[in-house]
Amino acid sequence: MELLLGYYLDQFKDAPRCSLYDRRKRKQMVEYISTMIQGCAANDDNVQETCKEAVSTLVRYHKKAKTANGTVCMMGKYHNILYVAMKLCYLWQLKDHETVALVLHEIYSCERTFERIFIGAIFGTKAPHYIAGTRVVLNLTCIFPKFDFLLGWKSDFDDQEENIRGLVYFLDKANYARLELPFDVGGEIKLFRFIDLPIESCGKTSATKLSVQLGLPDRLLILLRFGALTVNDKDVVTVYDHILNRLMEFNHCYPYNLVACLQLLLRVIPMVKICLPEAANMITKDSVIERYGDLVDDGLLPLSRCGFRPPELKHLSRCTIRRKLWENFQLPTGIRMLPLPVTLHRYLDILED
């Protein structure tokens, strides 16, 4: 497999720099290499190993081109070939999480974002044409006009449903690989998990916060199940503060999608955290009534989640178990391994309350 793919990539060197800019060209390459994988695999049991070899060869090809350019990615076809590798991982459902993580790490080392994966799942496959890749591209095109062909990136997935399935696949493999990547936050380098990495072209907002802002409970459920907002940090506070303030704008006539988002968010923390002028990140009964009395009266903000009553022991147990599973990169797959009834599995997996 490596030898045949090597011959193919030797011919690829003569292709134009923008040869993989068009999604159709990347799709053609994916189909061609998929045919090679199927032909080289002696049987079904050998497909996974053959796919792994093909993906690894593509990653090495990118690294070689990058090294030849002084460790600076030339973008263009040499970078876009990583998205061919990414799509092959998804199409063949490659189980080797280390190889999948290697592809993700190589993409991130050049782009410092995974927006081309996340944005298609959140906005749909047409949105990346206008949004994804803008941080990488706009800065380059201002200095080097030759990079203008990178504008208008289109998702490698056929539709939004496939994009969501692809996101779930990569979230799962990133968890198995315990993938953590550095990101500059105000001059300080911090490690982020794949699911929590900010999206540059959306104001460095996480996919979770973006789903809440847009009122997308189905996407939010996926992200929360995989451990988003498990850590009580500033990002968690701003997410809850945003959804509560948004709901207060509707004067007792609340949109279903925002209510659904709040209900999901209340399943993953012991008690709601909100921003207050007098004491940031702290909450008192009087302050809750003053700011969100309508939500308390209408039952959207339960008394057990805002300080009036202690949270239920069952809910506190869920938060604690999920936190321990998150620390070990076991959300949500580790839930099914716990010796508990199926109904409790669903409760821990925030599929029901």
Rank of each mutant, 00 (worst) to 15 (best):
L4F: 05
Y7V: 07
Y7R: 08
L9A: 08
S19A: 14
K25E: 10
K27D: 13
Q28R: 07
G39E: 10
A41H: 03
D45S: 12
D45F: 15
E53T: 10
T57S: 12
T57V: 06
V59Q: 13
K63W: 03
K64A: 13
K66H: 01
K66F: 01
T71F: 10
M74S: 11
M75V: 00
I81V: 14
Y83L: 04
A85E: 05
C89P: 12
Y90W: 09
W92I: 00
D96E: 10
V100N: 13
L104Q: 02
H105F: 04
E106V: 02
E106N: 08
R112G: 09
R112F: 02
E115I: 00
I122F: 00
T125Q: 03
Y130E: 06
A132V: 00
L140W: 13
P145S: 02
F149K: 02
W153N: 00
I164S: 09
R165K: 09
Y169R: 01
K173Q: 15
Y176S: 12
L179G: 00
L179A: 03
E188T: 04
K190H: 14
K190N: 08
P198M: 12
G203V: 06
G203E: 03
T205E: 15
K209W: 13
K209A: 15
S211D: 04
V212G: 11
Q213M: 09
P217A: 14
I222V: 14
L223C: 06
A228T: 11
L229F: 07
T230A: 07
D233L: 04
K234F: 13
Y240F: 15
D241C: 08
N245M: 07
F250W: 08
H252Q: 14
L258E: 07
A260I: 06
C261H: 10
K273A: 13
L276S: 08
A279R: 10
I289E: 14
I289S: 11
D294Y: 14
L295K: 05
V296C: 10
G307F: 11
P310W: 09
E312T: 07
L313D: 15
L313C: 09
R323A: 08
L325M: 01
Q330L: 12
H345E: 10
D353V: 07
